[in-house]
Design a protein around this nucleic acid. Structure first.
Length: 548
RNA sequence: CGCGGGGUAGAGCAGUUGGCAGCUCGUCGGGCUCAUAACCCGGAGGUCGGGGGUUCGAGUCCCCCCCCCGCUACCA
């Protein structure tokens, strides 16, 4: 059964380049999932782009003496380049500051909710730095914790005692940017009254099935505690202006406009395709599944606030699934740009091919817990799994076919005692591969493919074709023909994870009927005696650890 | 402090509704010769973070504690 899907990957903030942690947790799983959906005949649109607004970008721009738009376009290009180089292919990679209609749609979200009474204005006291001439978001104010006197409290919370407090209670506040003492100013902001959606959100969340525990429990936990009103405007010039006369000089909080980008980018995509109304089914047809990939730090926004915004609108689908991943660390510590700790796509691709990177990041995907990237393990997993198990199986079968069967699928008998077993194993692998991918468990899914290859090696050894070719040439031929089926299955099932290698391996076989029907046919004999086999050579040579 | 996730052989991980603790790597021993120093078979190696409890039976359910990660108004 085929469906329509709208798949998103979290919008990267346009102030940094994605590192492998981002890739492993969000963009690669999303890309693999999309490739899987397409292989199995579904209609998918895959949307991403940069989150361009907010204070950090204005500060970067000031430091560099340029406009925010310049910072954004530079980072966005780097992001897109990084994703593309790893074979992560979005249908559109846009950005919230350049997408036509994004501001209008974000404003509509604001106004609709305002009209419905879901948003109200309140006066607040906030720090304002006269030297920097701007209001200071929490992370740009430091001072002494009013509760435990620790000297490094930030904004409205203290890392030492872990407690939160009213921002204006901070003792001896200073601006992180210039060190001056900020003043407190009264300013009006608009608040999203999330508590009005508590019942609807709870009902929706509880009815979701197949979600990850961390996402569902986290969101339900927040609902149990009650949702406080959330400020959704800021005193800032860089962003989507609040669409009210009395809100001059204020913009929507980035987290209010960013998720709207998922919709506005989809509209932009169809606009470009010359089908301006084509986006609607992807967002408004209830038969469409909306799937958001993101990291665990983002669950609050995607599982609670964004759905509340959508409920407030009432004319868009709610997410069908939110596969949130944990984090990938580098050698046990967080990836950190400022500390120079970690690896970028560019760095690793200078040494190894995209599929090797994709394989390792899939094999250690942080789906259930944080995992760790190390170079030694990168080499080990690639060699142990791809070279020794998958690559060697393919190669030994191809070489045997080439040498003793003239590179043709052996014709003849069906009396191999291994044939039935092989077909059964193939179908089983395909089924668990499908089940895992449907549940967005990519690590388990790729494991099923490697296991299939492992089983292929076992059967090869058990069949001993190097012996049987002398004693029972026909039986030997059937065994090899069956093993070729298995190799072909491995090639197909590997494709969403390793698009290039999958294609290379599939190229050894006569053209199939297309990925979907080829997949459906797995478990039956699909190769005919005499079909030519064109071995691709060694697809996964063993890797060596590059000098650091 | 609160909420969510995690803690299982040397390493990395599985363990569905409670029913003999599994897989991969590493290690030790054996086999094979089609193959990428590969492949296959077997052995050794676990007080399942700690402590209580429920049960005929707990990695699994309940309570308490310890450690790691995230959220708590701008890092996936």
């Amino acid at each position: 059964m085929t469906r329509r899907y709208l798949v998103t990957a979290a919008l990267p903030y346009a102030n940094n380049k994605p590192h492998l942690g981002h890739v492993a947790g969000v963009y690669l799983p999303a890309d693999i999932y999309v490739r899987f959906l397409r292989m199995t005949g579904n209609d998918v649109v895959f949307v991403c782009g940069s989150d361009d607004h907010g204070v950090p970008i204005t500060i970067s721009a000031e430091k560099e003496g340029c406009e925010p738009q310049e910072v954004v376009s530079r980072y966005r290009a780097a992001q897109e380049e990084g994703f593309t180089s790893l074979g992560i292919e979005f249908d559109i990679y846009s950005g919230t500051s350049t997408c036509p209609g994004h501001g209008d749609l974000s404003s509509e979200f604001f106004l609709t909710n305002l009209e419905k009474g879901n948003i109200e204005a309140r006066d607040t006291m906030q720090f304002y730095c006269q030297a920097c001439r701007r209001f200071l978001p929490d992370r740009y104010v430091e001072g002494i914790c009013p509760l435990c006197q620790a000297p490094d409290a930030r904004g409205d919370q203290c890392d030492s005692c872990g407690k939160g407090f009213e921002q204006t209670l901070l003792t001896e506040p200073r601006c992180v940017g210039c060190g001056e003492t900020p003043e407190t100013r009264n300013t009006r902001q608009w608040f999203f009254l999330l508590d009005r959606f508590e019942d609807a959100l709870r009902e929706w969340l509880e009815s979701r099935e197949g979600w990850r525990e961390n996402v569902k429990n986290f969101a339900l936990g927040l609902l149990r505690e009650g949702l406080p009103p959330r400020s959704i405007t800021r005193d800032l010039s860089w962003g989507v202006p609040v669409p009210l006369e009395e809100a001059d000089g204020k913009v929507l909080y980035v987290w209010f406009d960013a998720p709207v980008g998922y919709i506005s980018f989809t509209r932009e995509l169809f606009e470009k395709r010359g089908d301006p109304e084509g986006w609607r089914p992807y967002w408004q047809d209830e038969e469409t599944s909306l799937v958001h990939f993101l990291g665990k730090d983002n669950i609050l926004f995607h599982a609670v606030i964004w759905p509340a915004m959508l409920l407030g609108r009432g004319d868009f689908n709610l997410p069908a699934n939110i596969p949130a991943n944990e984090f990938l660390n580098f050698k046990g510590e967080k990836f950190s740009k400022s500390k120079g700790h970690g690896v970028t796509a560019e760095e690793i691709l200078a040494l190894y091919s995209p599929d090797r990177v994709r394989y390792y990041l899939t094999a250690i995907a942080p789906e259930n817990r944080d995992t760790s990237f190390t170079w030694e393990d990168f080499i080990a997993r690639n060699n142990d799994d791809l070279s020794d198990v998958v690559g060697n199986l393919c190669h030994r079968v191809f070489v045997f076919t080439d040498r003793y069967f003239d590179s043709k699928v052996p014709a003849g008998g069906e009396r191999s005692e291994h044939l039935a077993r092989i077909l059964e194993v193939i179908a089983g692998a395909r089924d668990s591969w499908r089940t895992s991918l449907e549940a967005c468990r990519i690590r388990e899914a790729v494991g099923a493919v490697v296991s299939l290859a492992r089983e292929g090696n076992r059967i090869f050894d058990a069949a001993q074709p190097w012996k049987s070719r002398k004693e029972d040439a026909e039986g030997c031929g059937t065994d090899i023909a069956s093993l070729l089926e298995l190799v072909r299955a491995v090639a197909l099932l590997l494709t969403p994870f390793l698009p290039e290698s999958g294609k290379l391996l599939r190229g050894a076989f006569p053209d199939g009927d297309g990925l979907k029907s080829d997949l459906d046919a797995l478990g039956e004999r699909t190769l005919a005696g005499g079909d030519p086999i064109a071995p691709p050579g060694i697809v996964f040579p063993r890797l060596e650890l590059a000098e650091d």
